[in-house]
Amino acid sequence: MSWKDYIKQQMFPLFTCSGCTHGTVTNAFARVADELKLDKNKTVIVCAIGCAGRIPTFLDFPVLRVTHGRALAFATGIKLSRPDVKVIALMGDGDALAIGGNHFIHAARRNIDMTAIVSRNEIYGMTGGQYAPTTPAGARATTAPYGMLEPAFDTCKVAEAAGATYVARSDAYHVQHLQRTLKAALQHKGFAVVEVLTSCPTQFGRRNNLADPAKMLERIKEMTVTKAQAEKMTPEELAGKFVIGEFVNTSRPELTEIYAQAFAGMGV
């Protein structure tokens, strides 16, 4: 087995635009899946709508690709009805945090055993460049022609506050860090969230003087700092920066186990 056995090679190339680093998340995911030797027949991938929601159909797993934002709701039904199956939700930021925000919060609260990977490209790519709940203030989008007027979500803080027991952030530039983070998340028992900063040169870049894929990735390199670096920085210096690393890695009873314990000895 190699990482290539975890993708549908016959479907490639990916449908994505040149330089879309959602694909880099796919790249890292396939390698980590291979490293962990995930059982393709006992793992279910759940995804939904948008660019990040479509890419997982290129993975060689059973894939349930659902309505916009609802990946974690469907995933909850999968995991609770078949706790022996590993469940992984691959989502975009609009998918997970705007239309799917309620499901995201409650999946975290329940600490149901699954991995939620959120690719944050800060824009709605598939629909043509509208602003997302992650679009940075001032950035231009088709629906923010005067610049983004709303503040952006901090995905990791939301996940932590809601009760996720593994929360980390990585990005498409620091790819070794990304692989390590995905590996840790996939091995975690409980609700694990990984936010991955990705770049959309076509829809975000083009409207923000960053149409070049390499410049977009350079931006991610510049705006990310490690936890150690962040500790030495002032709040002013940290403005606009994203800290990468693990924020939560704790153990708390997991939902399907709580169910199993509560009903042990009952019926079949």
Binding site: F12, T16, G19, G23, T24, N27, A28, V175, Q176
Partner: peptide, 11 residues
């Protein structure tokens, strides 16, 4: 291996 890992098209 950074080019291999970073490649968004797994190419």
């Amino acid at each position: 291996l950074l080019c291999e890992y970073r490649c968004p098209d797994l190419a």
